[in-house]
Design a binder for these strands. Structure first.
Lengths: 126, 126
DNA sequence: GCGCGTTATGTCTCACCATACATATCGACC
DNA sequence: GGTCGATATGTATGGTGAGACATAACGCGC
């Protein structure tokens, strides 16, 4: 397989700041939502991405508080101890964020490359 | 007066991460470059944006080290004590970053709005 | 040569945040 | 009723980063 371009070593991190209140949404929360969707639990998602359960849970709490309806639906007890799933809103927010990321990466490539080629470790193209 | 839309209270912060080395470029450095271009000195730019000179200077040092050619050209002593100006590269990096920001704000608006309308403090439309 | 405003650099401290640790609760299943 | 794994929450501790403070050097003008 030809590895024409081994994934541009320049990555973009997008953080959204809402209103005056300090609520924000960025790559950390997006990854966490993704992990919860994949694993079915906050604890497992945290373990997978090397994040303490304490932190993972507090991020979930922040998100659930910031949005009109919770993004993550949790349940305690039961056969497997409990778990967590994304609500429709959670899936929607994640999808919007990923779509935004993809758009920026695609459409912003020229500008990003314009900066990257000036770096000391620059010249990505060749 | 009709305040149809008082500028979307949702702002986007863009941070670029380059390669494996920890070099990054975000809104703080962009604003600093802009301040230096406007004021003609690191100290004045720092004062203007409520940033200590120590920090402003260290950001400049970081940038000058990360890029192949310095983004900021400094001079010590002289009639006015010295000063700092953007190099061509500095102006170019700033312009690219601002252009990227504008693109994201314009083209990403639908996705951002898709998230913002789900917020507790949401519902901008009505 | 003295003064001035700026660049350049070192050191110290302190607040903050993340992590670690501890514990309580829940509920299906055996 | 005991076990288990997960949610839910409190407390303590430690490392990091930012700011405060101090100081040196520079070079033009008077």
């Amino acid at each position: 397989m030809l590895r024409a371009m081994a994934a541009p070593p320049t990555t973009i991190r997008l953080r959204l700041l809402f209103g005056e209140d300090g609520t924000m949404f960025g790559p950390g929360k997006a990854d966490l939502l993704e992990g919860i969707a994949a694993e079915g639990s906050i604890a497992a998602a945290g373990r997978r991405m090397g994040m303490s359960y304490r932190r993972a849970w507090s991020l979930v709490e922040e998100m659930n508080a910031a949005f009109a309806r919770p993004l993550v639906d949790t349940s305690r007890g039961g056969a497997r101890g409990g778990g967590a799933r994304l609500t429709g809103e959670g899936a929607a927010v994640l999808a919007h964020y990923r779509a935004l990321e993809a758009q920026v990466a695609a459409l912003g490539a020229p500008e990003i490359d314009g900066i990257a080629r000036l770096l000391r470790t620059g010249a990505p193209g060749r």
